[in-house]
């Protein structure tokens, strides 16, 4: 298959590969993730039951508590954090989390990631060049 590229701005440098977890309505900052296991536990959320560990999060923006960053931070310290993150635009919750996790992050995208990427797609992120590659569709 043809590899699909989405171009944007590299917000945090580095290269990562992993499976996408996609949610146009982001999870909330409190009581959304189990930071010991990486499981998403927010009731009724589209990603409820999925696991953050090693994933590439594709989210619209932050919601809920300002603990958005610190709970992902705890998950990362526990070895169950995401490998990279993609946001169509930055907001303060997601940008704070990006700076904390210091993993590859691409933002300000030239295509709508929610039209192009589905949960389970294999992605490669280049945070230096600001490129998202959809390597394999789920």
């Amino acid at each position: 298959m043809t590899i699909i590229f989405i171009k944007g701005r590299g917000a945090i440098s580095g290269i990562a590969e992993g499976e996408a977890l996609v949610a146009k309505e982001s999870f909330q900052g409190d009581s959304a993730i189990n930071f010991e296991t990486g499981e998403i536990v927010q009731k009724g959320h589209i990603l409820e039951g999925k696991n953050l560990a090693g994933s590439i999060l594709v989210l619209a923006g932050g919601r809920g508590s300002t603990g958005w960053s610190c709970r992902l931070h705890a998950a990362a310290i526990n070895g169950v954090g995401p490998a990279a993150m993609i946001f169509p635009k930055m907001d303060s919750r997601t940008a704070g989390a990006a700076a904390v996790l210091n993993i590859p992050v691409v933002t300000d995208l030239d295509k709508d990631p929610f039209m192009e990427i589905n949960t389970g797609d294999l992605l490669r992120i280049d945070g230096d060049k600001g490129i998202v590659e959809i390597v394999q569709k789920n």
């Binding site: 932050g62 300002t66 603990g67 958005w68 960053s69 610190c70 931070h73 907001d91 303060s92 919750r93 940008a95 704070g96 989390a97 700076a99 904390v100």
Partner: peptide, 9 residues
């Protein structure tokens, strides 16, 4: 103010 997060604060 922005909702930056605990570390940023």
């Amino acid at each position: 103010g922005n909702a930056d997060g605990i570390e940023a604060a």
